[in-house]
Write a protein that binds this DNA or RNA. Structure first.
Length: 670
RNA sequence: GCGCCCGUAGCUCAGCUGGAUAGAGCGUCGGCCUCCGGAGCCGAAGGCCACAGGUUCGAAUCCUGUCGGGCGCGCCA
């Protein structure tokens, strides 16, 4: 890892600059450590002299030279050069650097101790997951892994909207269209792919509503039944939600995505979390009852509007009252029922431990027979008797949810702020990303006539219409494609291993594809593109690691030598080959491999996980180029051979770690 | 109407806290298997970084405006 070295360089430069120019800390601009565009220019670059030029009234070049001369020795740094244009360039001690990385990583900087709650997935439990949900889960899961990598405690939550209209719609489908009671629904669930069955039923119900709007009254009545509980519709709804959630967990499990806690909306209702949050909001005046106008009788929250505030108060305008009213968001309807926003506010309060109330907890499932997936429950008698871990009470909350919900997520922050929880409002982070749509070609392949949308750049996925690529279908197709390739290349492998490898490859293909785009970009999903295993894809990355592993496997088989032996021997291995120009490419590879921590921090700072994907791909590219050019097994010079093997071992380890952060494993062969 | 996001090679996209010569994949064209496995490697062609101003020693990157495109803005969730 490279960050500790960055820190050291920053500290030494700061100290030197303070001494040489008699500057106070406050006058010192932030010291940026960069990576030079070419390795020949150095290993680390600092453009500080440009920043200081104006204040010191000196040419950047002169400043760089003075700082370089006064810097003195820095452990791990071989030499410092002031570039003619003013950059301060650092060349590292190559052999020492590689030896240190292989001997075990240096201690990292202090990690944030506060717990991070990451909520992701949150699919309505009424149909199969599709690729849009997969983007959410892949981003959320990778975010969680990055936070853990940094050393921060992480809790992954999945919100289950088991009492919403979408579940109600499927209940309506079973009852009104298929005339099924609870037992009949159970029989369907036991004998079909239930999430697929409901996928179709859901779109059928949607059409059924559209042909006669009067039927929407049945939906409303069913929704009320579900919210009230204690009736057949509520039983069916709860059953559907439970079974579909299990389908979702299985689907996500195929991608290595896991959860600590499932938060059920029904429990929030039954435990009256909203009532507690409502009392608190009323007490603070964060919500108030609107007595007049079109929102009379509603409890509303005033929405902050930056542009309006900037204009200043001019209440004299004739339409000022209307404008003010339009900036009020209804939290409790005039009939006394709470809106979705209200439930979300209560949940957000709970996540920070601000509600003063807690759920009971039960074990919902065990992954791979071990790790429990916990779920909330409102039934104390159903709670796990052995006690549950502490959930919630987060220091920071990441809600992974697509950008269309930005408005609502902003309200959550505001509610916290209005309650005086400024810190929590700041640490209430909406991880926003753009939706997944379908390319025209893929929409056509699904049999969808997109003629009406021919002029648009993509075709929007619609759960209601049943238009979309189901997650499991995509994974199945990826596995089939990967299976074909594995068989072609490894015809003699046992069927079971072939299958396992194909699954590992398919997972990487899917996950890399979902991570590689920056979050602000709409993915126009194209099935052919996603099924590709060449170029910038997950399998390309795996292939690089498999190649590296093969080298060490051969070394073991042919010569009985382990990697550890090479590492142990580095101490007395001459390093001329590494320090000379002949070692430039090897060194470039090692240095790039060490930047994982830097990239992980950048990804977290910007919430741009594509940074991690691009880094992994670039490193794999570098390795493949090196692999092609420099032999290891067939290298005769023992010192050169050792350094190469050591470098490849380090790169292999770092690339494996990077893949793991993206939820990808490395197959035994490819 | 207001708010947020996007506009970079034929296509899909990177481009870090403003920094050194704007990159990658796909596609096209041309090479490379006696070798650690070709899911690979090497090379070529391909750019008004949407447009116009501004800030700066320095702008694809920051600011303002314009033009395209997408998404939000409900007593739905």
């Amino acid at each position: 890892m490279i960050l500790p070295l960055h820190q050291l360089v920053r500290e030494r430069i700061a100290r030197t600059v303070r001494e040489v120019y008699a500057l106070a800390d406050a006058d010192l601009p932030p010291i940026v450590v960069q990576s030079p565009p070419e390795r020949a220019l150095g290993d680390l670059a600092v453009p500080l002299a440009f920043e200081l030029a104006r204040r010191l009234r000196k040419a950047p070049r002169a400043i760089a030279q003075e700082v370089a001369a006064a810097l003195g020795a820095i452990p791990g740094v071989a030499r410092v050069v002031a570039a003619p244009n003013g950059y301060l360039n650092f060349y590292l001690d190559r052999p020492a650097f590689l030896r240190a990385r292989l001997a075990g990583e240096l201690p990292r900087g202090p990690a944030p101790a506060e717990k991070a709650v990451v909520e992701h997935t949150a699919i309505n439990p009424n149909k199969a997951a599709h690729i849009g949900h997969l983007r959410n889960a892949a981003l959320g899961d990778t975010l969680g892994r990055l936070l853990r990598f940094r050393g921060q405690p992480v809790e992954i939550q999945n919100y289950i909207d088991d009492t919403g209209v979408q579940v109600a719609d499927v209940v309506v489908g079973f009852r009104e269209l298929e005339h099924k009671d609870f037992e009949a629904v159970r029989r369907v669930a036991d004998s079909t792919r239930f999430d697929y069955y409901c996928w179709d039923l859901y779109s059928t119900v949607t059409e059924w509503y559209e042909s006669d709007k009067e039927r929407l009254k049945i939906r409303t009545a069913t929704l009320h039944d579900i919210e009230r509980g204690g009736n057949e519709n509520a039983r069916i709804g709860a059953f559907i939600a439970d079974r579909i959630v299990r389908c979702h967990l299985a689907t996500m499990g195929r991608l290595g995505i896991d959860y600590d806690l499932l938060t059920w909306e029904g429990d929030i209702l039954r435990l009256k979390f909203w009532d507690h949050a409502f009392d608190a909001l009323k007490a603070k005046g964060a919500v108030f009852r609107q007595e007049q106008g079109r929102l009379a009788g509603c409890w509303v929250m005033t929405i902050e509007d930056e542009s309006a505030e900037a204009e200043g108060p001019d209440a004299g305008e004739p339409d000022a009252e209307d404008a003010a009213e339009s900036r009020e968001k209804v939290i409790v309807r005039s009939d006394g029922t709470v809106t979705y926003v209200g439930k979300d506010i209560a949940n957000q309060f709970w996540k920070f431990g601000l509600l003063g109330w807690d759920f009971h907890y039960r074990v919902f499932d065990r992954r791979d027979g071990g790790h429990p997936v916990w779920a909330t429950t409102s039934d104390a008698s159903a709670a796990e008797t052995g006690g549950a871990p502490t959930f919630g009470r987060a220091g920071v909350v990441y809600n992974v949810i697509d950008t269309r919900q930005s408005y609502l997520q902003k309200l959550l922050k505001q509610a916290l702020g209005a309650m005086g929880y400024q810190r929590e409002a700041e640490r209430s982070i909406h991880y926003a990303y753009e939706m997944v749509a379908l390319s025209h070609a893929t929409a056509r392949a699904l049999g969808y006539d997109a003629a009406a949308e021919a002029g648009r750049p993509f075709v929007e996925v619609s759960g209601r219409k049943g238009l979309g690529v189901k997650a499991d279908d995509l994974l199945d197709r990826l596995i089939d494609a990967a299976h074909g390739e594995v068989v072609k290349r490894n015809p003699d492998l046992p069927a079971e291993e072939t299958r396992r490898i194909a699954e590992t490859i398919a997972t990487a293909a899917a996950r890399y594809f979902l991570i590689k785009f920056s979050r602000g970009k709409v993915i126009a999903f194209d099935i052919d593109e996603a099924l590709s295993f060449e170029g910038e894809t997950g399998p390309y990355l795996q292939y690089a690691v498999v190649r590296a592993n093969n080298i060490f496997r051969k070394l073991r088989e042919r010569e009985g030598v382990e990697v550890a032996a090479f590492v142990a021997a580095l101490g007395e291995t001459p390093a001329d080959s590494l320090e000379s120009a002949d070692g430039d490419e090897l060194w470039d590879l090692v240095l790039e491999a060490s930047r994982l921590d830097e990239m992980a921090e950048q990804a977290l700072r910007t919430l741009e996980l594509s940074v991690l994907a691009k880094y992994a791909f670039g490193l794999a590219q570098k390795f493949n180029g090196f692999y092609h050019k420099y032999p290891i097994l067939n290298e005769d010079r023992p010192d050169v051979r050792r350094w190469r093997a050591a470098a490849v071992a380090y790169v292999r380890d770092q690339l494996t770690r990077t893949l793991d952060l993206m939820g990808c494993r490395v197959p035994s062969r490819m």
